[in-house]
Design a protein around this nucleic acid. Sequence first.
DNA 1: ACCATTTCTTAACATAAATCAATTACCAAC
DNA 2: GTTGGTAATTGATTTATGTTAAGAAATGGT
Lengths: 197, 197
Amino acid sequence: MLEHFQLYLKSRLQLTDEQAVEATSCLHTKVFKKGQVILSPGDLRSDNYFINSGLLRSFTIDEKGKEHIIQFAPENWVISDRDSSIFNEPSQLFIDAIEQTEVVIVPKDFFSAIKHIVPQILELNILMLHNSIRFMQKRINMLLGATAEERYLDFIKLYPNLTLRVPQWMIASYLGVTPESLSRVRKDLAHKHFKKA
Amino acid sequence: MLEHFQLYLKSRLQLTDEQAVEATSCLHTKVFKKGQVILSPGDLRSDNYFINSGLLRSFTIDEKGKEHIIQFAPENWVISDRDSSIFNEPSQLFIDAIEQTEVVIVPKDFFSAIKHIVPQILELNILMLHNSIRFMQKRINMLLGATAEERYLDFIKLYPNLTLRVPQWMIASYLGVTPESLSRVRKDLAHKHFKKA
DNA sequence: ACCATTTCTTAACATAAATCAATTACCAAC
DNA sequence: GTTGGTAATTGATTTATGTTAAGAAATGGT
């Protein structure tokens, strides 16, 4: 079960098989079944989840009972509530499983702990975090100005395979529009394409 | 000029004065005057800016000519275009100075370079990045569901002193609403408070 | 194969916010 | 002071999106 994560590490670091095995020797995997709630607001847990297979999401529920999807996490992504997993504060998010999902449980201090086995690991971690920030800034930029249609087009371009795996109402929630609006957008787009062809 | 940055480091790490001086010995500061444009889309520069004093912002301009403010960076914050400064790709952002601002120019590989002087520096960097992500997620959550009024109230609570230093139309741009809307929101809020008192 | 549940679509209507346009307030420079 | 330019306010109007509600389509469990 850890082979996937080892492969992931080897794909971005010069790493021998032995190093990869040793570095991950203290890790465990876990399987969540579809629909399972993994974390709820108020929880305190220091785990981050690396996705071997499947699909998780993090989201909030506001006072009106509406869900807002913060992140989708498919294969090779990491998901966590940082309030809880990094800063030891009560979680603000839900995390649940959109599909049956196998994760590697990565404790908060994993990267520090293996830095003597894999010296470049902290730099890799930093690079990955910068990359996350970069993508979140693009998303913020989109949310600041784009119409529902622009948001949707951007989404399917950026995450074509998520578009197929995730129910539409969740995509709507990720984009900050209602499912009804997204449905209309799709209708319009289909119409436009029809007219063009 | 580097004392401010050294103090910043010492405030979050066990660090002797000598270490702080040695670690920052290769750094330089720079002053930007109010209104000066520091980075434009397409630029390639590997600098990150730590703010000693003053206030910078990063923003985009869309096809309609509208500005979208991605980030404000007051004292002790770091600002950069990651596309350019971390990933060597052309910048997507503008960065300019809202006030006269003194920065420490922090090259991309600064933290790695001083890790032998300050061994905990990479962990600190990681913690700071997680913190950024956490705040960006809160902002995304806000943009996904909140009304103009909720966004504004959240902003003044989170950044009371920015509220005073930044022109309203920039706050509007940061919140993803028009200046006109923000003005109306403020009018309503003033009215509500008046009725209460 | 069937039924129950969830998801998606469609339409009529309501509303928050954008747009357009004009006025006022606020400055910095001269 | 007067001027010119930027910023903020206000009002009238439009528009995109939300809301409500209903029915159709798809999905999943037994």
